[in-house]
Structure formats: structure tokens, C-alpha cells
Simulated scan of single mutants.
Amino acid sequence: MKVEIVQDATSTVMKPVSKTKQKLRSIWKYRWQYAMIMPGFVLVFLFNYMPMAGIQVAFKDYNIFEGIWTSEWIGFENFYFLKDSEFWRVFSNTIWITVLKFVFGFPAPIILALLLNDIKNKTFKKWVQTLTYMPHFVSWIVVAYIVEALLSQSSGLVNGLLAQFGIKPIYFMGSEEWFRPIIIFSSVWKEVGFSAIIYLAAIAGLNPQLYEAAVVDGANKWKQALHVTIPGIMPTISIMLILTIPSLLNAGFDQIYPLQNPINQPVSEVIDTYVVKTGLNQGYYGPATAIGLVTSVVQLILVVGANQLSKRYGNTRLF
């Protein structure tokens, strides 16, 4: 408990300070910091918390003319999709794509950061960094056009190269076998450079004396990376892992939808596209909201579980 010193003409008295007064003093002390974060707080509240009132649509027979508040309550009837084989096929597609993205996409920026860290030519290093993180700023619509142009069966560059070796043209965009590799490769290509910046920043914060000691002990570049760099950036890796785990149910609507067509739909239909088609195209707002609610709950469980595991075994946590 904090106290404050009150002086008068005859004596000095120490009085306890209430918690409310302490908080008000703290707010006043950091008033400019609070003022700077207030716009972000307002935006998060308006666009993340206020829309949560719409969760009740999952438990109502929603009618757009009656509105959210006056539509009839129907309990868990909108959760019938849990018994629908079509939904579980879509769920399976989502897990396949997200797990493959995680397996190939999560270590890729770490490897790139380790490689860039060992480049001594600063000019070459800057060019590589620029070329690898620039795709992050290209929208998925543009990426979809690039992919379709490269993989076109009639005029695509890839099929043109295959024809030089006497290989028949492949209809990549209409193939169930090729859809997942295309999604994984384009995802890694687009995000690997930008994600590597985080790990490069973590590597830059390591003590150079650790590398000097490793060199004295006879460690080569591989052993330096294995025993100095990776352990040094492990807290950053743990935090990024916690942030990535919830995306195991988010395959990426903006990436998949532009590349989807009726031929590859058996493997390209994921929860994101399924919800949009169910809610907006077919008008089943209640079931679509129910699917989104279940997905959000599972994602919350995943991120809390990953945070607890990281706290227990890695001594690092997000919250």
C-alpha cells in the first residue's frame, strides 16, 4: 500500500493512498501515451467487439427484414452442419491446407533470416531482402492473376518450358492434385520475406560476444546457427508460433477464392469460402454465423493452449 506525506504547520503525517487515487495519478502521468493508443482502442472496439453482438444470429431464425434483435430464437438448430458430411469434407480440406502451410511456411522465414544473416555483402543482402519482402505488399487478386498467367495451359510460361522437354501441357488450375501445392508455394513466396524481418530483428539483438566465443571454440557457421542463433531467437519463435496456431482453421479466403473453380472445388472448398457461400450466396445467415462461432471458439482454445504449453516448456508466453 502506498502512502503520501502531508505536511502542515505543526507536523508531518503519512496517509495511505487509495487504489483509485493511485490509478488516477498513473493515468494522468501517462496521459499522452494513453492519448496515442486511444484511436487504436476505439477502432478495435468498433470493429472487433461491437460486431460480437451479431453472434446471437447463430441462435436465431434470422430474417433481414426483422433484424437481429427481433428475429425468433431457435436454440441450436443452426448447428445442424455438425452432422453434415459436406461440412466435414470442407473441414478436412481446411486442415490439409493450413497444416501444409504451417509445415512449409513457418520455418521458411527462419531459414531465410539465418541465410541472410550470414551474407557479408551488404548490397547483395539489401537486394535479396527487398525482392523477398516486396510480394507481401501485392494483393492476392494480383497474385492470382500472376499464378494463372504462369500456369495457363495454352500460354503459360511453365507449360511453355515443359513443352521444350516434350512434356504435354498440364491444366494446373483445373487439377485437384496441383491445387494444394500451388496454394502452399504462392503463400510461402508472398510472405516469407516479410516474416523474416521479425527474425532478422531478433538476430540483430543477440550479443556478438556469443559468436566470438563460438568461433574460439571452433564452431563453424552451421554450429553457430544451431547453438547460438536459434536458441537466442527462440523466444521470438515461440511468440510467432502462438500467433500462428489459431490460423490452423483459417486457410485464407482472399488467397483461395480467386483460384477456385468448379473443377478443383472438391479440394479447394474450405471453411472460409464455405461460410461466404452459405451466408451471402444462399442466404443462410444463421448456419453461416454458427460455423463462424464454432471456428472462433476452437481458435480461442488453440491460442490459449499454445500459450500455456509455451509458458510451461519454453518459459515464454504471449499473455
Rank of each mutant, 00 (worst) to 15 (best):
I242Q: 00
A288W: 03
P208I: 12
Q209S: 15
P246A: 12
M234I: 10
Q260L: 13
P258I: 00
T273D: 08
P258V: 02
S268L: 00
V270H: 04
V294D: 04
L210V: 12
Y211T: 13
P246G: 13
Y257A: 08
I301Q: 06
T273I: 06
T278C: 02
P258T: 02
V276K: 04
I230L: 15
P235H: 02
N207K: 11
E212W: 09
E269V: 00
G279W: 01
N207E: 15
Q282P: 03
V216D: 05
L293F: 15
T295V: 15
A306R: 02
I271R: 01
Y274P: 01
V270Q: 03
A225V: 13
I263W: 02
S238T: 14
H227D: 10
L309F: 07
A251Y: 05
Q265E: 14
G218R: 09
A225N: 13
G286E: 08
T295W: 10
Q282L: 14
V216R: 10
L259F: 04
I237V: 11
T236I: 07
K221A: 11
T244G: 11
T295A: 13
S296D: 12
V275F: 00
P231C: 03
N281Q: 15
L249K: 08
G283W: 01
I245H: 09
I245G: 09
L248M: 12
L241P: 12
G283S: 06
H227Y: 14
G232L: 06
G252C: 11
T236K: 07
S247L: 14
P246R: 12
V275I: 12
G292F: 03
L309I: 14
S296E: 06
I239W: 09
S268D: 02
A290L: 04
I242H: 01
Y257K: 05
Y284Q: 13
H227K: 13
L226W: 15
L280P: 07
I242M: 02
I263E: 08
V298Q: 03
Q224W: 14
E269Y: 05
N261A: 06
I237G: 02
V276D: 00
Y274H: 00
K221R: 14
G279F: 03
Q224D: 12
V228A: 05
T289D: 09
Q299I: 07
L241D: 08
L243S: 08
V298T: 10
I263G: 00
I263T: 04
A213H: 11
P208Q: 13
Q224Y: 13
Y285N: 09
L293K: 05
V267K: 03
G286T: 01
N307K: 01
A290D: 06
T244H: 07
Q255P: 02
V228N: 11
A219F: 09
H227Q: 12
N261M: 04
I239Q: 06
Y274C: 01
V297G: 05
G292R: 05
V276W: 06
T273C: 06
G218Y: 04
Y257T: 10
S296P: 05
W222H: 11
L259D: 03
I239A: 07
N261D: 02
G232C: 03
N307W: 03
G252V: 08
L309W: 03
